[in-house]
Each structure stands twice: as C-alpha cells, then as structure tokens.
Measured scan of single mutants.
Amino acid sequence: VLKALERTRQLDIPDEKTMPVLMKLLEEAGGNWSYIKLDNYTALVDAIYSVED
C-alpha cells in the first residue's frame, strides 16, 4: 500500500482519492497485487483518473 501511495503522491494525487480506488481494484483483483503493480501502478493511476472524469 505504501508504494502505491508513494507513486500517486508523485503525481499530486491525495491519499483520500487513492485509497478508495485502490481498495476497489484490490477487491476486483481478488487481492492480487500483480495487476495493480504493473508498469509502476499504471492501472491504479488510470483508475483514479477515470473516476475523476
């Protein structure tokens, strides 16, 4: 979780936006981090930006 938060902080995305999206992605992935961690957490960042749209 810390590495995911560090990555999104680099992009000026607050933890308050990151955590709900991260928890949803983890739930959808059955707790499997490998998809979320791919390409420096690209799936997480993309999911956060899609929620903002």
Rank of each mutant, 00 (worst) to 15 (best):
M19E: 03
D12I: 05
Q10C: 09
D39W: 07
V1Y: 13
G30D: 11
V45M: 07
M19V: 09
T42Q: 15
V45Y: 01
A29I: 07
V21K: 03
Y41D: 01
M23H: 08
D53R: 14
S50R: 14
K37T: 15
L25F: 04
L2R: 13
L5T: 04
D39I: 02
L44C: 03
I13C: 02
A43S: 09
W33V: 02
I13F: 07
V1T: 08
V51G: 13
E28A: 13
L26R: 00
K3E: 15
E28L: 10
E6C: 09
D39M: 08
E16C: 14
K3Y: 04
W33I: 05
N40L: 06
L44M: 02
M19Q: 04
D46E: 14
V21M: 07
L44Y: 02
Y41W: 12
A4D: 05
G31S: 05
T8P: 02
E27W: 10
T42F: 13
A4E: 07
V51M: 14
L44T: 02
K37R: 12
E27M: 10
Y49F: 13
G31K: 05
K3R: 10
T18Y: 03
A29E: 09
D12W: 08
V21R: 03
E6G: 04
K24N: 08
A43D: 02
L26C: 04
E28C: 10
G30L: 09
T18M: 06
M19N: 02
D12K: 14
N40E: 07
G31I: 05
S50G: 13
T18F: 04
R7A: 10
R9S: 04
T8H: 02
L5C: 07
V51Q: 14
D53Q: 14
T42P: 01
E6D: 06
E52W: 14
E27Q: 11
Y41V: 01
V51N: 12
R7P: 02
L22Q: 00
S34Q: 14
S50T: 11
V45S: 01
M23F: 09
M23T: 09
A29D: 06
L44G: 01
L38I: 10
D46H: 13
A4K: 03
P20Y: 11
L44I: 03
Y35F: 12
G30E: 12
L2D: 15
S50D: 11
L26D: 01
Y49G: 09
I48M: 06
L5Y: 01
L25S: 01
G30S: 09
I48S: 01
E28H: 08
W33P: 03
A47N: 04
V45Q: 02
P20W: 09
T8W: 05
P14T: 06
G31E: 06
M23G: 05
D15L: 04
D15M: 03
L2V: 11
M23W: 09
G30T: 04
V21P: 01
L26P: 00
R9A: 03
D39G: 10
P14I: 04
V45P: 01
N32L: 06
E6M: 10
I48V: 08
W33Y: 03
G30Q: 11
N40V: 05
E27A: 12
Y49R: 15
T42E: 11
I13P: 01
D53N: 13
Y35G: 13
